[in-house]
Nucleic acid binder design. Structure first.
Lengths: 276, 276
DNA sequence: TGCAATACGAAATATTAATTCCATCCGTCA
DNA sequence: TGACGGATGGAATTAATATTTCGTATTGCA
């Protein structure tokens, strides 16, 4: 009998997991059910929960007492509290953000707008990217001696973060951005044993397109992150990802693009580490 | 008596709003309470809810019957169902993402990890930023002749996007980043009529700190985006924002920081437009 | 194998909560 | 002003739910 009373769900959860092994059979049965169906525990009656978990109500009470509660009621309150503290649902939250953004109450409205745009983008991309594309892109980039990164204007921040990450991961890369006008020469060094990653969204920066064309004509495999299959980048790319970023006040959220770019960087490092 | 039974919360909500005018006083009182405190209705007992709303339990039942339910219990189930559905989206989605990320199934796991980190950051920041800080920062930046932007390393991508946005919005700014080693001279031009915006997270890039110190000593007001009140930036700043970015695989999500930076940019433009 | 301790199931009981009922209040209309 | 009808408060009633108890089964240990 443990009398340290777990006041919040997480504490209770870990207490359960910790003692899982040496719990009586039926008690363990309830423990498993409770962690799997916390909502049912929050709303049900002792009898209904017991039935669902396949035990007697009295066992449910014993379970509560095992963990320091004085009865089912106080155990249940932990499960209810958990639901209370949860913030509004994803959809509701987004709607609230959008509503605030629309009502334009001061600067916070603008801020909420950007948060909403970023959240939407992330939500969309989580569905859109598939393992197979990732695999191909990662394999291709992992083989490269040097990774050339092409991006301009609004895509440039992503490129600079990517370059930062790759360098940290000790992957050789070259950010094609120089203000010195030597980009063409830089690209001239690229060989088929290298790879390039281009990022561009409509309206596509002409420089990025041109460089992507040039580099792919040199036989360098190209991974592209862009916004549609009509993108001029798509035709030059060996593998390309479609990322639809939501925008607010005319500025795109970069959240989804960054998440994808960083995932590529870390995956490439991982791939190299594993394959030696 | 209306016997179309509202099965879900939204239907009930609109039914209440629609008939709000011609509801008896106490019933209306409950209606208002229920819409304002749906969570309490979901979890409370008829007695506790009645007390909170300032009515008798019997009135609560009459309220339920007015809207076609056969009693308090079935009314309450609508409020509970709402919580259930809510839950199964946002948090669970995040948990699912984290679980996938942890299980490390291939590259998608890594990708999910970055998406989860970004989502978490956005979720946290939406709460953390308040109107008053935004107002002060915006006023301060809007008055500036030139806005100097200080950021290095992992914060640099945000700074570059911010500079892009400010330029698009026709707000004069200067990104202090030059590889030519002229940063000190650049800062030397800053006057009290200008403003600076510094972005730095632990471990703070020494150059950013040093430049922030130098520029604030010249009497230039400073807005800082950083990660804690212990940040060296906080002491130099006129206004500062605390942004806690979640990280994955050692790389911070920049989503929250970007959202805040962009909101500042657009708000400043808006402020200038309105104030002429 | 036998004993003791613990776990368990089922029903009885105590508690708590929902619902109903009735007296009263208040506004409305004749 | 007085009578009617809906609205309300409060207590009584009924339903439900949690908890306790006790007999039995199971497990662990000597």
């Amino acid at each position: 009998m443990d009398d340290r009373l777990p006041r919040d769900f997480e504490t209770l959860r870990s207490a359960i997991l910790e003692r899982r092994q040496n719990l009586p059979k039926r008690i363990a049965q309830i423990a498993a059910y409770a962690l799997d169906n916390p909502d049912d525990v929050a709303f049900g009656t002792a009898a209904s929960i017991a039935t669902s978990a396949g035990v007697q109500p009295s066992t449910l009470i014993r379970f509560a007492q095992q963990f320091g509660f004085d009865g089912f009621t106080s155990l249940q309150s932990v499960f209810r509290e958990r639901l209370r503290e949860r913030n509004s649902s994803y959809e509701e939250r987004l709607n609230a953000l959008r509503a605030e953004a629309d009502s334009g109450t001061g600067h916070r409205g603008i801020f909420e707008g950007f948060v909403a745009a970023a959240t939407t983008s992330l939500n969309d991309i989580a569905r859109a990217v598939d393992e197979e594309h990732l695999d191909r892109a990662v394999k291709l980039l992992a083989k490269a001696e040097t990774i050339y990164i092409l991006a301009r204007r609004r895509s440039y921040p992503v490129a600079s973060y990517l370059a930062y990450a790759l360098s940290k991961l000790e992957i050789r890369c070259q950010l094609v951005e120089s203000a010195s006008g030597l980009n063409a020469e830089m690209i001239g060094f690229a060989k088929p044993g290298d790879a390039a990653l281009a990022i561009s969204f409509s309206p596509y920066a002409p420089a990025t397109i041109e460089e992507a064309r040039a580099i792919s004509e040199r036989g360098v495999p190209l991974v592209a992150i862009t916004d549609s299959s009509f993108s001029p980048l798509a035709q030059f790319a060996t593998v390309w990802f479609e990322v639809a970023e939501a925008d607010f006040a005319g500025f795109r959220s970069l959240s989804a693009t960054i998440a994808l770019a960083m995932a590529l960087a870390v995956s490439v490092a991982e791939h190299r580490r594993v394959s030696g």
